[in-house]
Design a protein around this nucleic acid. Sequence first.
RNA 1: GGACAGUUAGCUCAAUUGGUAGAGCACUCCUUUGACGUGGGAGUGGUUAGAGGUUCGAGUCCUCUACUGUCCACCA
Length: 879
Amino acid sequence: MTTRQMPKTFDFKEAESRLYRWWQDHGYFKPEIAPPDAEPFVISMPPPNVTGRLHIGHALTDTIEDLMIRYERMRGKAALWVPGQDHAGIATQLQVEKMLRDQGTSREEIGREEFLARTWEWKEKYGGEIVEQIKRLGCSCDWDRLRFTLDEGLSNAVLEVFVRLYDEGLIYRGPRLVNWSPGLKTAVSDLEVERDEEQGKLYFFNYPLEDGGFIPVATTRPETILGDTAVAVHPEDERYKHLIGKRALVPMLNRAIPVIGDEYVEREFGTGALKVTPAHDFNDYEMGKKHDLPLINIMNRDATINANGGQYAGLDRFVCREKLWADMTLAGMTIEVKDHTMVVPRSQRGGEVVEPMISTQWFLKIKPLADKAIAAVRNGDIQIVPERFDKVYYHWMENIEDWCISRQLWWGHRIPAWHGSNGELFVGKTPPPTTSQVTWTPEEDVLDTWFSSGLWPFSTLGWPDQTPDLKRYYPTHMMETGYDILFFWVARMIMMGLWFTDEPPFKTVYLHGLVRDKLGRKISKTLGNVIDPLELVDQYGADPLRLALVTGGTPGNDINLDTARVERNWRFVNKIWQMTNFVTSNLEGDLPFGAPPASELDLPSRWIMSRLNRLVASVQRLFDIYQYGEAGRQIDDFLWGEFADWFIEISKHPLYQGDETEKANTRRVLLHVLDTSLRLLHPYMPFVTEELWSFIPHEGEALIIAKWPQADESYFDEDAEATMTTLIDLVRGVRNVRDEYKVEPSRKISAQADAKRYAAALNEYRYLFARLCNVPDLHILTEGETAPDQSVTVVVGDATIYLPLADFVDVAAECERLTREQSKLLEQIAKIQGTLSNEQFVSRARPDVVERERTRLADLQTTADQIAERLTALCGGKA
RNA sequence: GGACAGUUAGCUCAAUUGGUAGAGCACUCCUUUGACGUGGGAGUGGUUAGAGGUUCGAGUCCUCUACUGUCCACCA
């Protein structure tokens, strides 16, 4: 039996790095640690951005996934958690560009090749940091399988997918109206545009007509007037319908454009007439197609006005807005400017106003892929947890638009296409041969970061090659991530996975919420409410943070993280440390593992074993439905509230006063309960549990690969639980009375008990009262004996304890206390009687519920009777 | 304009298929008894946002209202 001396407290700073290294060196994070025929369980880690720093959201994701992985590993699965990093096109490029600016240069200046070289350097330098940070949380991923979206294998997968989609006719290239980010000088997808309500202005002016007269129109973006190719009115609008077919003149440019009729125009809004700018507005674009209007692009890539803007060429779009409006005002065309609440599209990344612009881009016709993805969830091949996200998923999938996959960036997967000197387009994994007739120039654009992310579950396992990993670990099992990237990532993985592997890339999607501050505010630098997980790990260790994150909320809902919970869990860590210290320091001799059979155990042991096994069963049920938070809370409650507060205290009696059998049994039970609890707790708090497990006698080399507990129903024991509950309540009652009567805790008092059906138990376990409420000589009243008069009573069911506190008892106060208690009881009795006298209840409620109510009533009744008796004896029936 | 969450003790959160509303933190009082003062004991604190309904029984199911938050959406 090991007798390694435990330190007084848990030195997490020292232990965490040591244990992590030890786990990793022993290969415990690798699925190969399980037998070759073990069932696999695989999670692909949502790859953090290569330049990112671990934030609290990562901490949540990684903690939940590590919990799932550790749980399945302990269940004997070949658990594989594939870690990775994302090149994060825009985010990374922006950071490197900033570095270049700080160095007094720019990407344009150094050129594409040099820029990429510098970015790779940057990646090598900073890319590893987040890996180290993930390790600090205790994440048990297989670092030998670490992948990066731009590494060779994954890049090959990207090319393969692109070429196949192109060959299938699903990828096309052409000029379309797209969301253009002028600061980043690239197209972005619909998802990357955020639309928020802002205070803006609505500009009213008169659109001049060729034949004289005018139509009043309103716009929020006057600069787009320069690109107008029509004025639209509602075809049934009495005010304007006679003007349809006439020609209007674009202000300041005097370009003639038609007045058209279209039912899209809302007669009630603004002036009821609309200027149409197909090249700079999505609605107008549609209307333009319908009416065959020309597209006039008036902007350059940086959103300055181009030559189509006449005298305004060269101006910034917002400067142009002011200038043009001023000029129109001088020309007498303007009417008024009103404040107006409107929705402004902004770039998710830079925050700048996104401009709808005509641009030649690559698109993916995604509908066919989406159809498969919808079916997979509908037929249950993929389950989304919580279920309510199904609806969101379907809605998005059913209304999906072609995906603009090209970006005018340099950092990313370059689109495998070549442009021939005669206008040909070639798409393939390798460049086409140059001939005397044609020379080929490679495509400049790269792919949207999410394009490669969409392949993650299978690209990381070696696809398109049929690698052993792909065969064994694909499809994966769990996709755990935040609901905020359901569309960006999850939806696309499902589509790509189904399309290219013919299998759903994972079976379950578990969506967690966002971590917010304790006031429920979004975490942001500007608010100054950033919760830095690494700081918390430094301060309290990884385990307390992990437990706080997992138990802080429920699946799919946001978590308002109160760091006080982390601190509290740090105390919990200490608490289980001290429990273990107690258990180990009380072990002696060679003990068989496991608890003795229930028949050989005393009441407290039967009780704790019953409670333990119910806990195990309950945790299992909760894990089966992904309710990790509730399970964690229950383990916590059990350990602190039952095992430590009661069983450990009680165990001191058999340990110190018992015979050898009692000692051995108690030791075995202590050890078994602790061992089982550490196993249950391990996925939540891997470090401290592993460390503690090393101090207790154990079979097997490490807790991380120890067997996950299973409930043993032979220990379920309702009688033991009921009896112990009564004894505990009696102890509590005595403590309560002592406190109320201000009896010093150190003062021993005597007591007599009229225990009725608990007489035997009370008699056998009277030491509980000595130990737990300083009543060293509880006397059990036998038949004929009567209770002392001058005493305070504690009543639980039909068991009564009399405390002859002669010096303390104030008869009047005691009568009042009893009266108070009695009225509370009578109230409850009345309530239950009401329920039970209801025939409907008795006939319709579940029998066990009725039975429970009857028992409860009987208990209350006997308690009330006891108290009534006391009242008569002590207070002369005053009450 | 649609859709989805949330509203429970002062604060942060729980609560199996409907069956006595619970923790932690904070607060009050007591406490160095041989695991732990990062502890122990005893307490205070709730018409579960409001109104209806279904039911023997509702925090839980249904309807409506209020407030908060999120997502989706083409009113210039």
